[in-house]
Design a protein around this nucleic acid. Structure first.
Lengths: 328, 328
DNA sequence: CTGAAAGCGCTTACAG
DNA sequence: CTGAAAGCGCTTACAG
C-alpha cells in the first residue's frame, strides 16, 4: 500500500505538504494541492490511521460494552449510540461480554491501551471496581442503563418511577396479589425497580408478601422456571410484574403452561417495550424505556467527556406506560 | 501513562530488553526479567497497542459488518464469531450498517486503513462491487450468510435445500396453494430460496402461480402489509412460506388481523428458528439455520486467510425442519 | 507557502 | 544475553 512518502515523491513535494493538504487546516498553494491530489488518486493512497492516531494521541473510536447482545434492549440502545457516534466522526466498537467478567476485563485490557478514546458501559454491577479504576486513570467512561453510584457521567431511566407506574396500574385494575419477577440485586436497576414495586404497594396499603418476590433471575432461564415455581407452590396471586419484557414473555409462557389464562387468571406487565411485546399473546402491557434516546444521550455524554468538558449531573430519562392486552 | 522507556529507565535496562521480556519469545536473563516485571508493576505499564500494531503491521482485530442488528439472526451469528475471535486472540469490531450502503462504505474506509486485519461481511448484495474491490486489494474478506459469487471464502447455508424442505413439508401436510413472502432479489439468498420454493412445487406437479409470490419485502414492513395485500386481493391460499422468521411472525399477525386462523385457515412456515418462533402464537414451524456455527465457521475462515492460508471451497451449512404448531 | 527534522511508542535485525 | 539504532507512517513545531 502506498504511503505518504510515496505520494510526496510522485507529487514532487515534501511529506509535510502532503499531510497539510490532507488535513486541510493549513494553507497550501492551489497548484501544489492539485499535484498532491493527483498523486493520491493515482496511488489510491489511504492514510494509515494507526500512525495518525499514534501521533495525535487519539483514535476517534469509542467502545460500547454490553452484557448480552441477544437481549433486544441492547441492540435497540446500540442503534442510538451508533448514530450519534457517526454523526460526530467517531467509530463505534461494540463488545459483548455475555455477563462474563473475565471477557469484560479482556476487552478493557485490549482497548484501554490507546485503542479507544472512551468507553460506555452497560454492564455495571456492584463489583465493577475495575471500571471505577479505569475512570480514576482519567479515561473517559460513561455508565448507561446500569450504574454503580451517583456520579455525573451516567445515563439511566427512572427505574423507581417506572416500576411504581407498573404496580400502580395493576392496582388500579383491581389487582392486589402482585408477584414480582426481578433480576440480580447486585445490579442497581433491579434494586430500584424493587423499591418502586414496594413503594406502590405501601402507598396503596397493600402488605408486602416476600413470597411473591423473586430476585436474582438469571439470563438463561429468564423467569420461566421462577414463574413455574411460584405457581406450583400454590401462592395466590392475580398479577405479575416482570422487571423486563423477556421475563414477562417467559412468565406468560409459564402461566399458560399450567393451563391458566393471561389476563383472565393472572395479569402480566413488563418493563422495556421491545418488539416481542407485540408478538407475544396476549400483547404485553409494559413500561416503555426510550432505548434509542438512551443510546444517543450516552454517546453525547461520552463525546463531551472526550472533548474535555465536564458533565454536570447524572441524566435520568423518563418511562411511560404502554397499555396492551396482558392486564385485565 | 507510562511508556516502555519509563519502564526501561526504572529497571535500569534498555528498551529492547523490556520489549523482549514482554514478548517472551527471546531469552532474557532471569534476574533481569525480575527487575523488568517489578518496574512494569510499579508503573502500571500497559503497552501502547497502536505503536505495536504500527510496527508489526497487524492489529489482531477483525471487523464484522452486519446489515441490521435488530434482526435477531445477526446477534445470534455474532456470538459465534465473537467466541471464535476471542479464542484466537482477536478482537471483534461489530459494525451495523442498517442496510445503508453509504454507512457501509464509511466503515470500510475507516477500517481498511490498517485498523483491522480482515473483514466478514453479512451485507453482500449484487451491487457490492466495493467489497470485491477490497478483496482485490489483497485484504482478507469473508462472506457470511449472503454472498455475491462462488468464491471460496464464503460461509452460507443451503438456502435452496432449506426452502425445498419447507415447501415439501407443507405439501406433505396437504397444502397446494402456497404463498411465498420473500426478501429483495438482489440478495442471493433470497433468489436461492425462491429457487427451492419453485423446485419443490414443480417436483410435486403443482403449478407455480406468480400472484402468490411476493419478492422484495423490505426490513421496515417485513411482510406485514405484503401479507395483508395478498389476503385482500382474495387470492386463494392454504399456506405461506416466509423467507425469514420475522417475516413469518408478521404474516401471522396479518392473517389474524383479517379474522383468519393459523393454522386452521392458513398454515405458516418460516426460515431461521429464532427465539421469536417460540414466542409467537401458534409457535412457528420453521427451517432452522445453525446461526452460532455460521459465526464460528466464518471467523475460522477469516483467521485462516489472515494467517496466509488459502481456503479451498465455499462452505455451505445444512438446515433442518423444526416442527411446531403453525402448520396444520 | 514549504521543507527538514523530531518524535509518537513500539519491535527487530545488527553487533557485540 | 543485551544495547544502540533504525524504522513503522504519520503530524507538527521550527525555520525560512
Amino acid at each position: 500500500m502506498a504511503t505518504l512518502k510515496d505520494v510526496a515523491r510522485l507529487a514532487g513535494v515534501s511529506a509535510s505538504t502532503v499531510s497539510r493538504t490532507l488535513s486541510g487546516n493549513i494553507h497550501v498553494d492551489e497548484q501544489t494541492q492539485q499535484k498532491v491530489w493527483a498523486a493520491i488518486k493515482e496511488l489510491k493512497y489511504k492514510p494509515n490511521i494507526l500512525a495518525k492516531s499514534l501521533k495525535e494521541g487519539r483514535t476517534n473510536t469509542v467502545a460500547l460494552i454490553i452484557p448480552n447482545i441477544r437481549n433486544p434492549i441492547f441492540p435497540a440502545v446500540t442503534r442510538g449510540a451508533e448514530d450519534t457516534a457517526r454523526k460526530n466522526g467517531f467509530t463505534l466498537i461494540l463488545c459483548n461480554t455475555d455477563e462474563d467478567l473475565s471477557v469484560e476485563k479482556d476487552y478493557i485490557d485490549k482497548l484501554t491501551n490507546r485503542w479507544v478514546d472512551g468507553f460506555i458501559f452497560a454492564t455495571a454491577r456492584d463489583d465493577s471496581s475495575h471500571i471505577m479504576e479505569l475512570k480514576s486513570q482519567g479515561i473517559p467512561v460513561v455508565f448507561m442503563i446500569r450504574s454503580i453510584d451517583n456520579h455525573s457521567d451516567t445515563v439511566t431511566v427512572d427505574n423507581r418511577g417506572g416500576a411504581y407506574k407498573a404496580v400502580d396500574y395493576l392496582i388500579s385494575r383491581g389487582c392486589t396479589r402482585i408477584a414480582f419477577i426481578n433480576g440480580p440485586l447486585d445490579i442497581d436497576l433491579y434494586r430500584q425497580r424493587l423499591d418502586g414495586y414496594k413503594n406502590a404497594l405501601k402507598e396503596h396499603g397493600i402488605p408486602i408478601d416476600d413470597r411473591l418476590i423473586v430476585n436474582d433471575v438469571n439470563d438463561q432461564d429468564n423467569g420461566y422456571h421462577a414463574m413455574l415455581n411460584l405457581l406450583d407452590k400454590g401462592i395466590k396471586m392475580d398479577a405479575v410484574f416482570a422487571a423486563s419484557d423477556p421475563k414477562a414473555v417467559n412468565a406468560i409462557k409459564a402461566i399458560k403452561s399450567r393451563g391458566l389464562s393471561v389476563p383472565g387468571d393472572i395479569s402480566v406487565i413488563g418493563f422495556d417495550d421491545l418488539d416481542i411485546a407485540t408478538i407475544v399473546e396476549p400483547s404485553l402491557t409494559t413500561i416503555a424505556q426510550p432505548a434509542y434516546d438512551i443510546g444517543t444521550t450516552a454517546m453525547d455524554t461520552l463525546i463531551r467527556l472526550i472533548d474535555g468538558h465536564q458533565n454536570a449531573k447524572p441524566i435520568v430519562l423518563d418511562t411511560h406506560l404502554v397499555v396492551r392486552q396482558s392486564v385485565r
